[in-house]
Nucleic acid binder design. Sequence first.
DNA 1: CGTTGTTTTGCAACCGATTGCAAAAACGTC
DNA 2: GACGTTTTTGCAATCGGTTGCAAAACAACG
Lengths: 333, 333
Amino acid sequence: MQSLKNRITLKEVAERAGVSRSAVSRTFTPGASVSKGTRERVERAAEELGYQPSVLASGLSTGRTKLIGLVSNNFRNPFYLEVFDTFTTALQNSDLRPLLVNLTEDFDADRAQSMLQQYSVDGVVVASSTLPPQFATAFSNAGLPVVHAFARHLDNPNVDTVGIDDVSCGDLAARHLLGLGYKQLGFIGGPQKAASTMDRQTGFLRVAGSECPVFYAEDYAFDAGFSAMNHAIESGKIADAYFCGDDVVAIGAKAALEASGRSVPGDVGLIGVNGMTISGWQSVDLTTFRQPLACIVDAVIERLLELMEDPASTPRAIRFDPELIERNTLARR
Amino acid sequence: MQSLKNRITLKEVAERAGVSRSAVSRTFTPGASVSKGTRERVERAAEELGYQPSVLASGLSTGRTKLIGLVSNNFRNPFYLEVFDTFTTALQNSDLRPLLVNLTEDFDADRAQSMLQQYSVDGVVVASSTLPPQFATAFSNAGLPVVHAFARHLDNPNVDTVGIDDVSCGDLAARHLLGLGYKQLGFIGGPQKAASTMDRQTGFLRVAGSECPVFYAEDYAFDAGFSAMNHAIESGKIADAYFCGDDVVAIGAKAALEASGRSVPGDVGLIGVNGMTISGWQSVDLTTFRQPLACIVDAVIERLLELMEDPASTPRAIRFDPELIERNTLARR
DNA sequence: CGTTGTTTTGCAACCGATTGCAAAAACGTC
DNA sequence: GACGTTTTTGCAATCGGTTGCAAAACAACG
């Protein structure tokens, strides 16, 4: 009923330019057949009226909205601000628009999915290391192109994934610690049920040995890292160096060590994962494995574009290597 | 021409339920007239087919999309992760969808505006203390409901604003420092041209006196705070306590002080603004003015809903008081 | 049972675009 | 100037819903 605001429509531009509506539409459709003359007249008319084509209307007939659902449940970990920053700018550069979804108890997977379907998004990016693979699969079952970033890697995935290989990251961490001369290694993971935790643990213990002490932070958060390290301290036999499942967890762990009178890296060494900006602050100065965020994001979007072209394309798992950033929470023994 | 995916449409539901398309539409339109019988049949048919109404199509005729542009240029400051978290959940709870816009050099104000118009958003939230008022005004001139959060406050604003009163925040800060016995006060603001910086400075100097030393961090970021404090140190006459325009700036300033061999709060006191989670970490423990984020977000959305009802409603400036959180970067002298 | 008043229903037009198709215009060639 | 090609154009149907309007169904009442 109501016209959308008092927006200028195709029709008005057509009238002003003295051409048919199709001509106007074609002027704004790359690759359509319009003569130089009409194109110029249409463009002038559009310019004069301040015409903005309606994505809703064109989406209705073309079936594309250029909307991408950006779904995450990590709105507490500062690393994800960098993730959102990188994703939104990259999507914008590809002429796509992020429709942000914050998964909570109230707004669960089902609601998220039906909402994204209602908006006819062209694709979905799941950005989370804690969501299970089924979450992403649900979208692809519904016929939506989806790429899961920071997900667990399988050799024959049934949904596209991009990220680092957590198992080999754990492996690398243990080797690095041993290489520095640490003898007693310890592992402080994120949430126990998160795929990233399990995989990093697997890789780490493979090298460090299965008797190596293991603790979990309930959450990828400072407090959780703090209390996980306190458990480690209370356990009596504290390790020489810990591999922590996340930088924020590591920062919490460091605070707990210092609160107990121990120094880092003097008494105990720490290494994290993610390589978020904060870790580089002089007052933190955390040695960590950086996620190659820009590469990951680019790969996600490239893959998403491919899936939009060919939805039947078989899922792939794209891996990048984490980059060791040596700072000041580890010392040669 | 392609149908949108292979989505179930109104028509198919109507056929299956043996009613007209209008009946189906009315079943899903709150307040429309449908008999109990048809409603049930329609609901069953919809359920069986897994029908999801298309927001695009309905938006086209109703003129509402439930899409809200969430625009910001602060994707580096961890405080804004909390801002996005709170905004997205609150919008979701009001059955609105955040279309996230990351303002950059590439994606400037003009592009953002025309893009949001193309998507016929129902409203816009500008979340930034550094964007000028004209940015928000441009939307309201284009007929879009807009509320600017964390904006400068004017008594007769020409666009809706919600946030803390920066002038009185500066005032409060100075009084608090004097009350603790600090004699030589200093001010380290954010970007010099940001309204928040200027207002906090005004309030602060009003109490601290205009001879009080003033420095600016080029950015609301750690490094900027670090080097601003270094300038203060190099200037020769270092103050007893500094009011910093942002927590991250304060954290950077603290690092610079410590790097120069000074202790906080032993030698120099610091107080920040924002009250972000990080500031509460034991290893940071920063005294700060907390922004009442939940209140701000609720007020923004409430106001936005009002504007969507009545776009002619006269703009208001809603203020909240910052809350002093006393931690460990200030000590009684 | 007829009359009047209230709900419920379907028809058809519309929201603002896109696009297949056929007619019209422009172009080339002899 | 006639004729065959290619390009440009407009018509009209379509995308998936909403809604004013008038007809149909139902309810209430004397």
